[in-house]
Each structure stands twice: as structure tokens, then as C-alpha cells.
């Protein structure tokens, strides 16, 4: 599995062609309606005071999502932003702060960030959540940030994400822990592996 990264960390990451030219910076990351895959990126100009660009980068034009840059084959892969976002706007904006529940209706927390896999897959592998006190007991008034794998059975219902209980049983403290979780490695007392393969990209 390639390196995991949060969607927030992608903002301001340079967009670079294989010819070595930086053509933009990432402004926002767009996902499909089921929060399975990255569908593309909206962009800003490269200069400090540059505003949003009218063009967006669709995922099929991405060569690789890297630790230091988003690589694309050439600038011809950009399309008008409206063609990518339509009227839905950014799903990330809708997912951030969304409630997360188990299938039994128990509150897990709220989504603080989306975790994606680097490389060529564009896969969403999990979420960083501000955990509910019942899920992760901690100091009063303090909501611990933990990572939970997306799993194959997540349901998106408006501003609510619903996860199976099995998925919520295994949490990670950081991205390294989530990487281990999604690879099926469990800590002491853990259960079986978490299936993270949501299928082939669209």
C-alpha cells in the first residue's frame, strides 16, 4: 500500500507536470458521493495572491499523488472546474464535520479529515474523527482524534456517515496505525483484518 495522507494536507501541494513545470496548487480535494474515491482537485494559482483557477484536475489526468507533489502528465489534462464539481460542490466540505454513526445508531464522533492513499489508486481508506466520549474515553470536554478505516460498507446519508460495528472496533492513533489497520494488522487483542477494497475506481 502507498503512503496514506490526509485530504487537508493536500491543500497547497504543488501540481507538477512530468515535464517539471508547476502549473498550480491544490485548493481542495473532491470525492465521489459514496466517499470511495478521489474524483479530482480544484486548484489555485502558484503565486501568493493568486486566486482560484477556473480549471480543475480530474483524477484520470493524475499520474501519481505523491508526498511532495501531485503529478500529472501535462497541462492538457485540466478541465473547467464546473465540469468536475457540477452543482454538488466539494464533498470534502460536506464530509468535514459530518456525524459518524454505527449501523446500530451509536454516535462515533464527527469527521475531522479524510484519509486517502497516495500513488495511483485515488482510494479513500479512512477518516480522522473527533471521537465521541463513549467511543474513546478521555478527559472531560476533550474529544480525542483517532483514525478509523473506511471499510467496504460505509454509507453516506446526507451529512451522516454510517459504519459497520466491526469497522469501529478497531481504531488507530495515527496514520501509521491506520496503515497497519488497513493492511489487516491488529494490535494486541485485535480481531481479523479490515477489508478496505471498495472495488475498482470509476
Amino acid at each position: 500500500m502507498d503512503e496514506l495522507m490526509t485530504a487537508r494536507s493536500l491543500t497547497t501541494r504543488p501540481v507538477v507536470t512530468l515535464g517539471g513545470d508547476a502549473i498550480a496548487h491544490v485548493r481542495d480535494t473532491l470525492f465521489d458521493a459514496e466517499a470511495r474515491w478521489i474524483t479530482g482537485f480544484t486548484l489555485t494559482g502558484r503565486r501568493l495572491l493568486s486566486g482560484p483557477l477556473p480549471h480543475a484536475l480530474p483524477w484520470p489526468s493524475v499520474h501519481a499523488l505523491g508526498h511532495d507533489a501531485v503529478m500529472l502528465r501535462d497541462a492538457l489534462g485540466l478541465i473547467p472546474e464546473d465540469a468536475l464539481t457540477g452543482h454538488r460542490g466539494s464533498l470534502r466540505a460536506r464530509v468535514l464535520g459530518a456525524r459518524m454513526l454505527t449501523e446500530a445508531g451509536e454516535a462515533i464522533g464527527t469527521v475531522a479529515d479524510v484519509v486517502v492513499e497516495g500513488g495511483t489508486s485515488g482510494r479513500i481508506v479512512g477518516f480522522r474523527i473527533a471521537a465521541d466520549q463513549r467511543l474513546v474515553p478521555g478527559r472531560s470536554g476533550h474529544r480525542r482524534r483517532v483514525y478509523v478505516a473506511r471499510g467496504p460498507s460505509l454509507t453516506v446519508a446526507g451529512r451522516t456517515l454510517v459504519l459497520p460495528e466491526e469497522t469501529v472496533r478497531h481504531l488507530a492513533d495515527d496514520l501509521a496505525g491506520l496503515t497497519a489497520l488497513t493492511r489487516g494488522v491488529r494490535g494486541p487483542g485485535g480481531g481479523g483484518g479490515t477489508d478496505t477494497g471498495p472495488g475498482a475506481p470509476p
Binding site: 504543488p14 507538477v16 507536470t17 512530468l18 515535464g19 517539471g20 513545470d21 508547476a22 507533489a69 503529478m71
Partner: peptide
């Protein structure tokens, strides 16, 4: 070597 642009040598 793949390309040399204003940002990097790819």
C-alpha cells in the same frame, strides 16, 4: 530523466 521544468527535474 523525464523532464526539466520551472519547478523540478522529474
Amino acid at each position: 530523466l523525464l523532464g526539466l521544468g520551472d519547478h523540478a527535474l522529474v
